[in-house]
């Protein structure tokens, strides 16, 4: 609700900073963190319990389905190995994210200014999107070898579309009156772009980045399946052909933690950068 008292005091008084102290804010944040982590944690623990019970009671063979404990022991016993390989995959994904994201945003900056151009570019972008990476990955391996490059390219490919769409929408999500103001001030196209369009697009770019980041990670892993010297994808593939289920599951677990960390970091950056945006303001009030 709007603060009636402030609304009625017609002459604004010099502001005195109000609100919580830093420590009370930290406690509040912690409490919020715990209460928001509780439901997913409960679900996780219940799932693991059910999994364990099922494997024990039905006496499932370890090469079909390992017990949670076996996975845990394999994973924690060799964390250095898993995260070493994970880092390789992470680098490929990050490279793809920068490459695909960079091209997508640059293209969107141009396309956002012209509907005909958008109509020309979008079908191609959609064609890129619907092409399954599993089909392209072996081709890239033939063209670009077993090194990092084909994986980066695949990651770039899956990153491209979500960021392109979000960036186009974002660059257009400009307050029309702010745009008119810029024109009335005879601002250059460059100034309009950097001072108005880019900040307006930022919320869209960041949420596109969050979607793309996990996609890039999966893309890089899938790319590794069609030939790689290192990486989590290779670990999982080898474990699969050896029927080494604990390793396979530990590999997946590693990927999951990497994905979660990446998303969390991006969310944090988002919150920092978009403190002014409706969705991140504490005590947002209707305008």
């Amino acid at each position: 609700m709007r603060d009636t008292a402030r609304r009625l005091s017609t002459t604004p008084q010099a502001p005195h900073r109000q609100g919580q102290t830093a420590s009370s804010r930290n406690v509040a944040l912690l409490a919020r963190g715990v209460s928001s982590a509780a439901p997913p944690l409960t679900v996780l623990i219940l799932t693991i319990l059910a999994w364990d019970l099922y494997v024990r009671l039905r006496d499932i063979k370890p090469y079909i389905m390992p017990s949670p404990l076996a996975v845990w022991q394999r994973w924690t016993g060799d964390l250095g190995f898993f995260y070493g390989e994970g880092l390789v995959t992470m680098r490929e994904a990050a490279g793809g994210l920068v490459l695909g994201g960079g091209i997508a945003v640059a293209l969107a900056a141009v396309v956002a200014h012209s509907r005909p151009l958008e109509r020309g570019v979008l079908p191609v972008a959609i064609a890129v999107k619907v092409t399954p990476v599993v089909a392209v990955a072996p081709l890239f391996t033939i063209w670009f070898g077993f090194g990092m490059l084909p994986k980066v390219l695949i990651a770039a490919l899956v990153t491209f579309f979500p960021l392109l769409i979000n960036a186009i929408v974002g660059f257009r999500a400009v307050n029309p009156q702010a745009l008119e103001l810029m024109h009335a001030l005879n601002a250059s196209g460059w100034a309009v772009f950097w001072k108005l369009r880019v900040p307006s697009a930022l919320p869209y770019l960041l949420s596109g980045l969050k979607v793309s980041a996990t996609l890039a990670l999966i893309g890089a892993m899938v790319a590794e399946w069609s030939g790689a010297g290192r990486g989590l994808g290779r670990v999982v593939l080898l474990a699969h052909s050896n029927l080494d289920m604990p390793t396979l599951f530990a590999g997946i677990l590693t990927l999951a933690t990497l994905g979660i960390t990446l998303t969390a970091v991006l969310s944090l950056i988002e919150r920092r950068l978009l403190f002014w945006h409706e969705s991140f303001r504490a005590g947002a009030r209707p305008r």
């Binding site: 103001l181 001030l185 005879n186 601002a187 250059s188 100034a191 001072k195 900040p199």
Partner: peptide, 24 residues
Amino acid sequence: FQDAALLPWRTVLANVRLPLEVQR
């Protein structure tokens, strides 16, 4: 305008300065 159309990512002072930055 009817809508103040301030840029939400700029402080009040930076908003007031905006025309000085963009006017050639």
